[in-house]
């Protein structure tokens, strides 16, 4: 398994991308896709990436649903702010969040989540102290944003990438 398929997820992704680009899948295209999926990941050996292990697929599925919902909701929130439909005083500012997540892939996915939900922007991360500096468009005050990032995104990510 590890000899032929050192990075099973990468192989699956490459093969699938090949088939999507060369639709409809004829037998020849499927053969080429399998070849690409088998050969290209061996090149990755020279880069020595850390092996990725995904645990808790149920948590992963739940996280995807949560992120999709938050993406639509925060898009609407930010659109309301831009169009001037939001009532009341709005404060904007920086929030500092202490993160316990250290896994590089988990942090990369957290940055995608935080950028994918408009209204939050990843400004800086200090890998020594594990503190993340976040800019939020609608700072409601208190530790609401800290709780939201830690409970909604960080805890599931720590379960998925232990």
């Amino acid at each position: 398994m590890s000899r032929i398929l050192p990075h099973p997820l990468l192989s699956a992704g490459l093969g699938l991308t090949w088939l999507l680009l060369n639709a409809p899948p004829t037998p020849g295209n499927v053969l080429l896709a399998i070849l690409v999926a088998l050969i290209v990941p061996t090149v990755m050996r020279a880069l020595r990436p850390r092996p990725v292990r995904v645990r808790a697929p149920g948590t992963l599925a739940r996280l995807i649903v949560i992120v999709l919902y938050d993406m639509v909701r925060s898009n609407i929130d930010v659109a309301r702010i831009i169009l001037g439909l939001r009532r009341g005083e709005r404060r904007t500012g920086f929030v500092s969040i202490p993160l316990d997540l250290r896994e590089p892939l988990g942090l990369a996915i957290l940055s995608i989540i935080l950028t994918g939900t408009p209204g939050t922007l990843w400004v800086q991360y200090d890998s020594d102290t594990g503190r993340l500096l976040l800019h939020v468009l609608d700072d409601t005050g208190g530790d609401k944003w800290v709780r939201r990032v830690k409970d909604r995104y960080e805890r599931p990510l720590m379960e998925i990438f232990p």
């Binding site: 639509v72 898009n75 831009i82 169009l83 904007t92 408009p118 939050t120 922007l121 800019h135």
Partner: peptide, 28 residues
């Protein structure tokens, strides 16, 4: 949605606020 994002580029006041605007077009 993309047009609203581009409008935010004009309407929001500071740079750090404006960075949020194009993500509307890049996501939804």
């Amino acid at each position: 949605v993309s047009l609203t994002g581009a409008l935010g580029l004009i309407r929001l006041r500071s740079f750090y606020e404006r960075v949020h605007a194009p993500t509307l077009g890049a996501t939804l």
